[in-house]
Each structure stands twice: as structure tokens, then as C-alpha cells.
Design a protein around this nucleic acid. Structure first.
Lengths: 338, 338
DNA sequence: TGCAATTACGAAAACCTTTTAGTGGAAAAC
DNA sequence: GTTTTCCACTAAAAGGTTTTCGTAATTGCA
């Protein structure tokens, strides 16, 4: 009784396998009566089509993949939550892969996925230096629908879901300056990610707008390694050119920063004003409450997934270069008071 | 040149498909020379076996599933990270499914997965009332390897990875009391999860040990809904029987509690001592720093995945009722000072 | 030399669906 | 009354592997 298949179903119904298949596929070739018989017996035996056989024959399936740098990060976990809310509703199965900012891993992953296991991809790229040729190549080889979000390869023609990084960084930086910062610093990822570039642009524009002259050391590059970040920040804050304002573009950096300030007894916001890009639920509960730019992570996930499934099902021929821009939310809290 | 398959490979090599298949599978039936030829051509064309065909034939694949209640929770995302670190290394693909504490969803999911899509499961159960019959049934129907972690169905004979909840709750509660609490409260999930029961047992034992008499209202049940939790907690803290100590067994509750105390100006630790079970990286940075019991989440993921893959590959006949117990870590911070 | 065992490979079945190309019969069209 | 269309269904191929069984040639042993 367990694991019944179409053949057994057909036999018991006195029908051919093809009829059963078509009936279950709700084909117009099959009479209403037969359909009903088939569906009822299928239900009785809890028949479930074998996805391997089905995918093999149809050359595609209802499986997609998420590729992200990290899952232990509120932004990404919220995105995954958003994606899953859509794929679950539409009965897609969702693979998850973590690159941990490793380009090697990302490449290996894409190559692996050329085996045809999935029918579409949602990606936030790792911060590699070598550009995005591997994505283009993957696409050439597979022609699979791909949607990028947040960390998107700006030069490639793929649909993207992003947030207004330039604007919000500009605004936030200006508010840092208005709160009294003479020497704001931008905490950046190491690599030339589009997201990051946009934010730096916004940062620089605000600096210029305020009449402060920009120097390269106003952008501090951090890594994926919390300990390393801690030591970098520590050095920075015991140096003479101690910054008085920080725009932390990554959740981890904001956390490390708070840690350093606590240990070095740097008083926020008196000695240092801070704003962080993060979706941390505890931001308001930190000491002092952290001002944040939070990204619409859950919705980004939903949008990305919706777009991808549309592309897979070709219901709408989503333009290959659709760009959806969602709004970030700026929340000023004590960490930025003058 | 794209998507080459075994048949084409065989043709070009002047061999039969079966020989190619065996060569790639490193069968002893094939001579070293032939193997080398096959492997080289396969590499040249970047041949990748079609997983659907392969899985169909072998009746199993290298795909597993994770079923968890929530991903926006440091504990679970760390576990996923741990799992992924193993499955990635062993070239397994990992599906992720979120139940959001819905028993319906959990059941539907299991039923869906009876289609044979996966070869094994790692599960942390949702907090349903109806027991765990659906897991047993799933197992009967599929005979698939399953490993449970943290929230495990205590009555079922499956391998489990848990942490020493009883002990650490006992210890932590005792410390609450030693710090001066007369009326500690346990924040619990709504349902009779094993994890939760263990913790409550530990809590009660400590209470008894301290000579305090236990009453039912010392266990407060919260839900998955943050707003609802907030209102419950708010009510509790404006009531006359305001607690002076809290053991928050779930991350979300600790956050809501801090929020409520902040809004109601309840001073922690003066008026209220708090300890939370959480893996929040920001615990030390909260105001005041939150004492925590953190679970070895990443390692739990690794252990669970390692166990599961062993079962799948039948290298070791992992006893169906293996239980791996890892140690939680208690960190006392300001929120619990007397 | 004769016989068994081994080696290295191939043919074909099996895995379970979906899809294509029919087919027989009834209804519609002329 | 014959041809055409349509309906409801079937047979068979196709999808790409893996595995079972078979076989021809070689090796081992007496």
C-alpha cells in the first residue's frame, strides 16, 4: 500500500498508464467521469507522483535554490523567510546554499547546479573580486531563470530586487553630520559589491554636500571574521584619528563596534555616533539603542521569489532586466543623538 | 556542448553506456585504462550525471531536508549553518522548510515529502498539541532516516541531538533565586514540547530545592506572535503579582520582555532579574547585558547532519535511538546581578 | 590440453512519468 | 451512405541513469 505508482493505479482502474497520467494532469482528452475515477483512487491510495521520473521526463521540476553568503544574519534569514512563504504556497521545494563569502564555493556551487537539479535560482552574491563571469556562464549553460537580490551583479542583465541604498545612506550620513560628526567613517565590506558601492556613493555625496573633504581612510574595510573585525576596530579606536561617527553597512560590523566601544569605554553617542544597516530585532534594546537602516528583507524575499516563479512558469515574460527597488527604513535612536 | 549525457559520451568513446556508467562509478569491472579514458572525456565535456535519472534508478539521491519552526532565530539559523557545513562538504543538497509552529503545515510537509524527493530528514518539531503520530506514520511509509534535534518527540524511537536542558535550567533558576528572586517565572512555549518539559522540570526542581512552593501561574505560556507576547507580558508586569525573576526559555520572549520592561520602566536587574535561553550575538550588548544560556547550535547542526548522513550511507548502523547530548553554556551578565 | 575461473565489457531491463502518434467508434457534415 | 471530424482512450517512445545478466576472451591450474 505504500509508494503506489501510476502503473498499479492504472491496472486497478482498468485503464492505460497514459490515461491515468492525463487524468491527473487534468487533460481535456479525458472524460470527466474517468478523471473523477482516477482522482478518487489516487486519493484513496495517497498516490504521489515520483518527482524524479516526472522531472526527468519534463526536464524540469518544482525545485529552486537560494544562494546566500550567510544565514546567521537577520537580513538574510528574513529574506529566506520571505522566499519560503512564497515557494511554500506554490508547492516549490527550496534548496539552501551558503557561500560564506567564498568565491570558490560560489563557483563550485554553480557548477554543481548545472546538473539540472533546479529550475531557478535566487542569489545574493558573495563578495568576490573576480567579477561575475561565473553567473553569466552558468546562465549560458543552463538558461535557467535567476533573480538576484540586495548584493546584485550590476553589470549583468538579470532581474534584481534591491533597496534604495544610495538615498538612505545619503540621508543617514547627513544626519550623522548634523548630529555633530566631523569625521564620519564608513564600515564597508572588502569587495566591490554593487550594494556597497551604492552606499559608498551615498556616503561620499553626503560628505561632499556637507563640505567635508573625503579621504580614502574614511572607508574601513572589514571581513567576514568577527575576531578580525574586532581587532581592526579596536586599533581604529585607540588611534589618534579616532572617528566620531560611524555608518556601519553590515550587521556584523555594528555588533563588533558596540563590543569594542564597550570594552574601550567609548561613550555612544557622546563620543561616537553610530548608525547601522541591520534588521536586528534587538537594535532598540542595545545599550544605547542603535539607530538603524533596516531593509525590507521579508518583502525582498517575497518579491524575488514571486518574480522567479513567474519566470519559471512563464506566465509573464518577466523582462530579463527587471529591477524592483524597495524602500529601506531609517530609524533614529539614541546612538545618533547630538 | 552543453548538457552532454552518458549516451553521447559512450558514443564518442566507442563504448557502451553501461561501461561508461560503471567507469564513472569506479566499478572493479572496468579496466584502469578504460576508466581513465572515460573520466578524462567526462571532465573535458564537464559531464554531470542527471540527478533525476540517477535518483530514479537508484531510488535515492543526495538530497535531504531540514524542517524547523523558524529561521529568524539565531538558534535555528546557527543550526542550519552547522548542517550546511556538513552537507556541503559531502555534496548533499539541502532543502529547507519552515513550519512557523503550525502543525498543519508540518503534516502537509511530511505528506508532501512522501513522494520520495529526499533521502533523509533533520527535524525540530513545531509545537503542536496532537502528538507526533505523523512522524511515526511518515517513517512507516517511507523508512527514511530521520534525526531530530532540540525539540524532539520524546516518545518516538528516533536518533536525537539535544542539549542538557534540565541541568542548565536547574542551575540558572537556582542562581536567579540566589540573586534574590522570591517569585521567579518561567516563560514557556504553549505546547508540551519535550525540550520545554525538561526545562520546566529543571525550573520546578530548583524552586523546590530552594523551598519555594510552585504554583501553576509561575509558568507563563507565550506564542509565536511577538505582538501577542508583548501584550501578555505587559499585562503581567502591570499586575500586582509582578514577578521579580524570569527564565525566558525562548529568544523571542526575552526580546519582548526587554521591550516591555523598557516601556514600563521596570529596572533590570534591580526590580527584575532575567536569564534567557538564546544564541543572540547581541546579548552582551543589550541594556543591561542579558544573562544567557546559549545552546551549542552550530554543533547540534553538525552532529545531526553527520548522524543523518551516516544513516543514509549505512556506513554505521546508527542505532535508531541514539541520543547525543551536548552542553549548553551559561553566561551570567548584569541582568542577573543581585 | 582441458576445464574452471577471472577479466572487461555489452545488451537490455528497470526506474516512473509524460508525450507523441495513433486508433476505433460515434457523431456530424455533405 | 459515405466521408470527415471529434471524442476518449491506448501503445509506445522518450527521458538518462544503474544494475543484472550474459559473453567472449584471457588467465590459471592440473
Amino acid at each position: 500500500m505504500k509508494g503506489i505508482n501510476m502503473i498499479q493505479l492504472a491496472k486497478e482502474l482498468g485503464l492505460s498508464v497514459s490515461t491515468v497520467s492525463k487524468a491527473l494532469g487534468d487533460s481535456h482528452e479525458i472524460s470527466a467521469i474517468t478523471k473523477k475515477r482516477v482522482i478518487e483512487l489516487a486519493k484513496k491510495y495517497k498516490y504521489k507522483p515520483n518527482p524524479f521520473a516526472s522531472n526527468l521526463r519534463k526536464k524540469k521540476g518544482k525545485q529552486i535554490a537560494i544562494i546566500i553568503p550567510d544565514i546567521v544574519n537577520n537580513f538574510f534569514s528574513l529574506v529566506v523567510d520571505g522566499i519560503e512563504s512564497i515557494t511554500m504556497a506554490k508547492n516549490y521545494d527550496t534548496f539552501i546554499y551558503l557561500t560564506h563569502e567564498s568565491l570558490e564555493r560560489e563557483k563550485a556551487l554553480l557548477e554543481h547546479l548545472e546538473n539540472g537539479l533546479i529550475s531557478g535560482l535566487i542569489i545574493s552574491v558573495s563578495s568576490g573580486k573576480e567579477g561575475y563571469g561565473h553567473f553569466q556562464e552558468f546562465y549560458e549553460n543552463t538558461k535557467l531563470p535567476m533573480v538576484f537580490f540586495d548584493r546584485v551583479p550590476d553589470l549583468l542583465q538579470f532581474p534584481k530586487v534591491i533597496s534604495n541604498n544610495y538615498d538612505c545612506t545619503f540621508d543617514a550620513t547627513l544626519r550623522l553630520i548634523k548630529a555633530g560628526c566631523k569625521r564620519p567613517i564608513f564600515f564597508s565590506t572588502t569587495e566591490p559589491l554593487f550594494t556597497n558601492m551604492e552606499r559608498i556613493r551615498g556616503f561620499q555625496a553626503a560628505i561632499a554636500h556637507a563640505g567635508i573633504s573625503f579621504t580614502d581612510d574614511m572607508v574601513v574595510k572589514c571581513s567576514d571574521d568577527m575576531d578580525y573585525n574586532y581587532s581592526i576596530l579596536r586599533k581604529l579606536f585607540i588611534s589618534k584619528k579616532r572617528p566620531d561617527g560611524v555608518f556601519a553597512s553590515i550587521e556584523k560590523f555594528a555588533i563588533s563596534l558596540y563590543q569594542v566601544c564597550k570594552d574601550l569605554k567609548v561613550n555612544i553617542p557622546r563620543d561616537l555616533k553610530v548608525i547601522g544597516m541591520t534588521n536586528l530585532r534587538t537594535a532598540a534594546l542595545l545599550s544605547p539603542p542603535l539607530s538603524t537602516i533596516s531593509q525590507p528583507a521579508f518583502n525582498m524575499g517575497k518579491e524575488a521569489a514571486t518574480l522567479l516563479l513567474k519566470m519559471i512558469e512563464k506566465k509573464s515574460y518577466a523582462a530579463a532586466n527587471d529591477i524592483i527597488v524597495l524602500k529601506n527604513e531609517l530609524t533614529i535612536r539614541e546612538s545618533m543623538q547630538s
